[in-house]
Design a protein around this nucleic acid. Structure first.
Lengths: 191, 191
DNA sequence: CGTTCAGTTGACTAAGGTCAATTCCCGTGG
DNA sequence: CCACGGGAATTGACCTTAGTCAACTGAACG
């Protein structure tokens, strides 16, 4: 039933079948329809989700009322609002499904219980954050080194799925440019 | 002797005095003189360092021969070249001391041994990466939302120490702008 | 069908980069 | 202690990239 999560965990850490079975009992299934929210800003994010299928967008609304997309997350990733989850503060971020999305949800309380009972599962948490950190590092690299077109080209190369499924305006805000500029870039790149 | 590291660890996780003493035996002291390197690109980064005092700069050289500063790290932080350390690949990054810097070094092998022997210490690793990730998240936020002047103002507000100690050209590359532009910004801000 | 909102396009503007010339420090050797 | 050499910082003139504002197109949905 949770074959996808099972595979993802086994690919990340070594764990006995029994422990893995036990671990999986902590995750509760959830389905988010297109445009529905897993988290709205102002709330506390006290869960981590495993993204079984679909596509999530993490964004917030800035002082000018613009929606800024921080992150897209894809299948087989663990997702949360990091600042809210780790510092236990209200989230400024929203987490929304871009398409109908299947999740497996674990609460922070259960996660800590799990860490206590099976200390080796902490490795999974560490590696999950490590992966997030590596993604962010790459993204900072792109901002420091590459102009808008090159950042888009990078996405075209490494995340073509996003470009197919995500509205242009979200992509633009993720890339740190205006929708108009991205629209113009697309024209020059296709030709 | 390792009072600083002791305090930092105790602030992060709960650990018995005995375990903490044992843990500290894994860390070896090291002093880096100004401009010396802890890591040069092309090598494998198989250590994490605790920055006891001083200031480190993580940078790499891009295709155009420009030095791009990824990160500055300050006292009481844990530092490594994340990609190299976690993926066990050659580092593209250099880690250099900006001033004379005292480190406490632990090897990846020892760290994994420590994780095995005292599973709760994994929490420390998780939290250290979490902190790094939160910093990077903040930085991405600044790139998405703020122009060069606002990013500099943010640094002025939250990291005034850096501005005092770090040459302008390094600050500029960290902020993603040219030294010329930063120099001009400074003029308008002081007045 | 009309309304609405995403995307496109055009004309103009602003932010920041580039190139080149000084000027300013600071360390080193005489 | 001074002079000088070299890299860092500053400044100026000009250019490129990307943002802004506004008009228009087009698809989606009730």
């Amino acid at each position: 039933m949770n074959a996808s999560l099972r595979t993802t965990i086994q690919a990340s850490i070594s764990i006995s079948d029994d422990d893995l079975d036990y671990m999986l009992t902590f995750f509760k299934p959830m389905i988010l329809k297109k445009n529905n929210f897993f988290l709205k800003s102002g709330n506390y994010c006290s869960h981590v989700v495993y993204l079984k299928s679909g596509l999530l967008r993490i964004y917030y609304t800035n002082e000018n009322g613009e929606e800024i997309t921080c992150y897209f997350s894809l299948e087989t990733e663990f997702v949360t609002s990091l600042a809210s989850f780790s510092k236990e503060i209200r989230s400024i971020e929203n987490i929304q499904a871009i398409v109908t999305t299947e999740l497996l949800v674990i609460s922070k309380i259960d996660l800590e219980k799990l860490y206590q009972e099976l200390p080796n599962t902490q490795e999974l948490g560490r590696k999950a954050i490590e992966k997030i950190a590596l993604n962010m590092e790459k993204r900072i690299f792109l901002f420091l080194n590459k102009n808008a077109e090159e950042r888009y080209q990078d996405m075209l190369k490494n995340n073509p799925i996003l470009i197919k499924k995500v509205p242009l305006k979200y992509l633009a805000s993720y890339l740190g440019i205006t929708p108009q500029h991205l629209s113009r870039l697309r024209k020059t790149i296709v030709s």
